[in-house]
Simulated assay, not measured.
Amino acid sequence: MITNKITYKNIHNRFKLNGYHINLEQMYYVAYSFIKEGEPFEQHVGNFLLDWFDEKSYIELQTSGTTGAPKVVRIEKQAMLDSALATGDFFGLKPGDTMLHCLPTNYVAGKMMFVRSFILGLDMKFVEPNSDPLKNIDETFDFCAMVPLQAKNSLEKLKAKKIKKLIIGGVKVHKALEQELEKLPMEIYETYGMTETITHIAAKKIGEKVFTVLPNVKVSTDDRQCLVIDAKNISKDKIVTNDIVNLISDTQFSWEGRIDNIINSGGVKLMPERIEDKLSTLIPRRYFVFGQPDETLGQKAVLYVEGEPMVIEDAVFAVLDKFEKPKEVVFIPKFNETATGKILRTESMQSIGH
């Protein structure tokens, strides 16, 4: 697709916001109205729109803080535009397609939904981001993006085919939810990405293991087996991640876990995400596995479960290999999490003095 004729100030003539065609001049009016008279979630939109259409060539975005302190990164608007075009190509979006926007716009995923809509010419309905976005929705939409909690709370509406094509990101899709989503009569994709990659750079259909990258993206691994992303339209430099992957080709990979989380227990390297995946349909609450110091083993695997103490039968751990079985189970009343729903493991443990 030719992109050099399209600039970030282009607004497609098919773009609609909540049923109204809006041009560049009207976009400023909408932005000011949101800021002056809107709800807090609308004020975020207004501020973003003014930032997008100003004279600067970049936008400053805040990372979610999942693996460290949140930080501000500077992203070129042209790179965001190119990302929007790649998403359109990958998911087959065309001018006039209807889209439901239900993500918070103070984070990159919500911002990119706006960019996609006015660059690709989508007919967008924008609603307040909450945990049950389809609750008061009667229309049917061609495209929507959600986080897993929203998808979980929307299962009944999704069964009624309210969304034709759904992408889910922000947090890994839990296996129990994945099994529910596989039953639905629609196209559903789990996406892979981060703020630095301007949301997703790869996607896979729900139920599949292998991610396929979007157009103009290539992937490789470093000597740690961690993913390296080469997306020149997004970043001049290669993006080196801490995500351990199984590389299938320069366009496909499967995600295995985070190198930061690996537990070295008695010389055996344990991957918490692999353990969590095996337990995913057996523990009816949120949980995670983390390594803690141990005099004998160096590190031991500890299972942290959200909520009040409960009995977890030993048989639950039969699905695990001998060395994977947690040496301790600890209950945390409420996990700490980012605004996008990612569990902050370290902060959650620190909340109970671990």
Rank of each mutant, 00 (worst) to 15 (best):
Q350I: 11
V311I: 15
V213W: 08
E306R: 09
E347C: 06
E178D: 02
K135R: 14
L282W: 01
L50Q: 03
I198L: 09
G307I: 15
F288D: 03
K183N: 07
G92Y: 08
A301I: 13
I11L: 11
E256Q: 09
E182F: 00
V302M: 10
I248Y: 08
P284R: 09
N47H: 07
N242A: 14
S131K: 12
L134G: 00
Q225D: 14
V108M: 09
I283F: 07
T3G: 10
A69T: 14
N261C: 07
A69H: 08
I167L: 05
K327G: 13
E313Y: 06
G207S: 03
K159C: 05
D54S: 07
R286A: 12
A86F: 00
E337D: 03
N13Q: 13
A84P: 03
I234R: 11
N18T: 01
F114L: 12
D89E: 15
N18E: 04
T140S: 01
N336G: 07
F290C: 12
G68K: 06
L158W: 01
P272L: 01
E273H: 00
Y20Q: 15
T296H: 13
S249Q: 05
V329P: 03
F48M: 08
L184I: 14
E190K: 00
G353P: 03
S154Y: 03
K56A: 14
L100K: 00
F323W: 05
L120T: 09
H200V: 11
A84Q: 02
P95I: 11
A151M: 06
T67W: 10
F143S: 01
E273L: 03
D260L: 10
I244S: 06
G92M: 11
N336Y: 06
V240C: 13
F290L: 11
G121H: 02
T63E: 09
N261I: 09
D243Y: 05
K238A: 14
M1C: 12
F41C: 13
I248C: 13
P284N: 09
I259Q: 05
E37S: 06
V210D: 07
V330N: 02
Y192I: 13
S235T: 15
V127K: 00
K94G: 12
K205Q: 11
M310W: 12
D294K: 11
L227E: 09
A109P: 07
D54K: 00
V228F: 11
L17D: 06
D277P: 06
N18K: 00
Q299G: 02
L247H: 08
F90A: 07
I229C: 08
S351R: 04
C144T: 05
M27E: 13
M194K: 03
Q179S: 08
I22Y: 07
F53D: 12
Q350S: 08
R274L: 14
L177G: 04
P326R: 02
